[in-house]
Simulated scan of single mutants.
Amino acid sequence: MDTNSWRTAITATLHCLTGCAVGEVLGMVLATWWGWGNAASIALAIGLAFFFGYLLTFTGVRRSGADVRTAVRAAVAADTVSILVMELVDNGFVLAVPGAIDAMLTDALFWVSLGASLAIAFVVTVPVNRWMIARGLGHAAVHHLHAGHAAHEGHAAHEGHAGHETHMHH
């Protein structure tokens, strides 16, 4: 079993989880502040989860020397499926727990259900990310850029490039 691909999948999923958590909490804060209903609150939280998930990857790729266009493409390729799976599981869980959707930021139920839903989403999303990475998809593209070689595509399947210090130059 390739432990590197599992490590890469876990790192990628934690990255995603961070963006999703920030988006969920900020969405709840804003929706409560603006007096929005549940459907609008969920839509805002999902939109912000995608935004912050993409932003974290985009920032990392930009830091490694990629141009804006390449960084945007890498973030979308790396995170779309991951965030989608995470948000489906996360919001599905919150909708399934009685009262969780109506819990406010001051309610323990909000934080408990958010924590539990993100934990479950993490467990579900790691194997999805690993499957994609093993096929040179998703976060393999980001590690491909971090490794600083865009020339030969087949190398993306050999993840574990996180330790490389070379960067892509334009």
Rank of each mutant, 00 (worst) to 15 (best):
D2R: 05
N4Y: 12
S5A: 09
W6D: 08
R7T: 14
R7K: 15
I10N: 14
A12I: 05
H15S: 12
H15C: 15
L17P: 02
T18R: 14
C20A: 04
C20G: 02
E24A: 15
G27I: 01
G27C: 06
M28I: 12
M28L: 14
V29P: 11
L30Q: 00
A31C: 01
T32C: 00
W34C: 06
G37Y: 01
N38F: 03
N38L: 10
A40W: 07
A40E: 04
S41W: 01
A49I: 10
F50Y: 09
F51V: 13
Y54F: 15
L56M: 15
T57S: 13
T59H: 13
G60D: 12
G65D: 09
G65F: 10
A66N: 03
A66V: 07
R69F: 14
T70S: 15
T70N: 09
V72G: 08
R73E: 13
R73W: 12
D79R: 00
D79V: 04
V81F: 06
L84I: 06
V85F: 07
L88V: 09
N91P: 02
V94N: 00
V94M: 04
L95R: 08
L95Y: 01
A96L: 13
P98M: 09
D102L: 09
M104V: 14
M104N: 10
L105N: 06
L105H: 09
T106I: 15
W111K: 05
W111F: 06
V112W: 13
G115E: 06
A116V: 13
L118W: 04
A121K: 02
V123Y: 04
P127W: 08
P127F: 00
R135I: 07
R135D: 10
G136I: 05
G136M: 05
L137D: 05
H139V: 09
H139W: 11
H139M: 12
H139A: 12
H139Q: 14
A140T: 04
A140D: 01
A141Y: 10
A147W: 08
G148E: 09
A151P: 00
E153P: 01
A157C: 03
A157N: 09
H158P: 00
E159I: 15
E159N: 11
G160K: 03
G160F: 03
G160A: 08
H161N: 12
A162T: 01
M168H: 15
H170A: 14
